[in-house]
């Protein structure tokens, strides 16, 4: 009987193992350890639920939020704002990056202005944005695209300027127009750099999203965190914090890594260096 039970448990673990990759398995163990520590520390610390909610209370709050449809709606709102804001910022960053990297005239004209605005962090703008447009989507979108714009811009410029001259000459000698040069040579050559910018910007923008939702939104994960704390529902705040972490893991897995694998990994940075030898 005893061995049967052990076998049973082993097969349970085995099926769990096949679900989680072997490397992630240790991460899961660590997470379970933290949860156990958290739960056992509740009676030891002995403060009220409001100050220090238990994992069980957080789980109940999460289930309630899912059942009422609040959490799915908030996640949808946050994800939508995030993707829209990042898309706008990336598009503008690439466009201005190409312009400044490619044209000395545009560089001389725009660089000082852009460097000046780079120094004014997005947080400094938010009060003014709120004054102009009130609380809502517009403030969040502008803030997010502002955050993403700079790292994408600077890395695009870097990428454009480090395209080997011989590749540019080769394209012109095959009959390329300026537009074709950008399309066939400059953009693909700068892509690894642009992705570096996108990765940086995407991380910053995610923090910016939560922050701006705390200030300027009536829904979303940031709003959940902020409202939970102000309404003495700290279990909801912690649900929001956990969702925030999970959401970032999701965004990284679903959007950022596949994009990198599609382009950069296929022909790789190494092949660029080699071609310059």
């Amino acid at each position: 009987m005893k061995t049967a039970a052990i076998n049973d448990r082993n097969s349970g673990i085995a099926s769990l193992r096949s679900l989680v990759s072997p490397r992630a398995w240790k991460g899961v163990l660590g997470l379970l350890g933290i949860l156990a520590l958290w739960q056992t520390s509740i009676p030891l610390i002995g403060v009220s639920e409001y100050f220090y909610p238990s994992p069980a209370a957080v789980a109940r709050a999460a289930i309630h939020l899912v059942k009422t449809g609040i959490l799915p709606a908030y996640i949808g709102d946050s994800l939508g704002r995030y993707l829209a804001g990042v898309s706008i910022g990336v598009t503008l960053g690439i466009l201005f990056g190409l312009l400044i990297g490619f044209s000395a005239g545009a560089s001389r004209m725009l660089s000082p202005i852009i460097n000046f605005f780079f120094a004014i962090v997005e947080v400094a703008w938010i009060p003014l944005f709120v004054l102009w447009w009130g609380y809502g989507l517009k403030v969040i979108l502008v803030a997010l695209s502002y955050i993403v714009f700079f790292p994408v811009l600077y890395n695009t410029i870097l990428g454009v300027r480090s395209v080997p001259q011989v590749l540019i000459n080769a394209a012109y000698s095959l009959g390329a127009t300026r537009l074709q040069l950008i399309q066939e040579v400059i953009l693909p050559a700068a892509l690894p750099s642009i992705f570096t910018g996108l990765r940086l910007g995407a991380g910053f923008a995610f923090r910016g999203l939560i922050f701006s939702e705390m200030i300027a939104a009536k829904s979303g994960v940031g709003y959940l965190i902020f409202e939970g704390a102000s309404n003495q529902q700290t279990d909801r705040t912690i649900v929001g914090m956990i969702v925030m972490g999970l959401l970032w893991l999701f965004i990284e897995r679903i959007y950022i890594r596949p994009l990198e694998a599609l382009t950069v990994d296929r022909w790789g940075l190494a092949t660029r260096a080699e071609d310059r030898e």
Binding site: N169, A170, A189, W267, D275
Partner: peptide, 8 residues
């Protein structure tokens, strides 16, 4: 001399 093929 550097071939100048497009790596992508």
């Amino acid at each position: 001399q550097e071939y100048a093929l497009l790596p992508w």
